[in-house]
């Protein structure tokens, strides 16, 4: 099946149509945030937004970033109750999350996407524009605003409780 093309920020109707295991191509605005930025506090209104758990390599030849790919999502689990409660539409990372966080996705009608870990030179090609949004002092952990085109991902958790990792119960 061809991947579904979605524009970010995501709307409720986009999210409702997704099922665990679906391939998607994401375009538009997403924000990077990982451990240190979550600890300090997500510096934007999460409603409808997408957080990409990633810390890129530095860019060369005038580019802000070099390679970029997902980090392990479950490290950000302790922050999900609050963020999903505030309307975060989706996050992008790698690996399964806690059962509690999976249930929160159903409750708050949000999705969790996984992207291929370690395919960071390939994923970097989808980033059309990158700028430091906040916390520049955190270096690789700064919050970046990315404008991407056709960023490939797979729906890991959908709003119906579906789980693409169900083969290996975590």
């Amino acid at each position: 099946m061809d991947p579904k093309k979605l524009n970010m920020p995501l709307e409720g109707k986009d999210i409702a149509g997704l099922k665990a295991g679906d391939r998607v191509l994401l375009s538009g605005i997403m924000y990077t945030a990982r451990d240190a930025a979550h600890l300090r506090g997500i510096p934007f209104d999460p409603k409808g937004q997408v957080i990409f758990y990633a810390g890129p390599t530095p860019g060369k030849n005038g580019r802000l970033i070099g390679s970029i790919g997902p980090t392990t999502a479950s490290r950000m689990d302790p922050f999900m109750n609050e963020l999903l409660g505030k309307g975060l539409a989706a996050s992008i990372g790698k690996g399964p999350r806690s059962t509690e966080v999976k249930k929160l996705h159903k409750k708050h009608k949000a999705v969790y996407f996984v992207a291929t870990g370690g395919a960071a030179a390939l994923l970097a090609r989808t980033v059309k524009k990158a700028e430091v949004f906040e916390y520049g002092d955190l270096g690789p952990e700064a919050v970046l605003k990315l404008d991407v085109f056709d960023f490939p991902a797979i729906v890991a958790y959908d709003i119906h409780g579906g789980d693409a990792f169900e083969k290996i119960n975590n």
């Binding site: 070099g66 390679s67 395919a119 390939l122």
Partner: peptide
């Protein structure tokens, strides 16, 4: 994707993985 990624990384001298 991983094989394609390795090819791009080598050609452009870009890190294979951001980590």
């Amino acid at each position: 994707e991983l094989l394609k990624n390795a090819e791009i990384a080598k050609k452009e001298k870009l890190p294979i993985c951001q980590d």
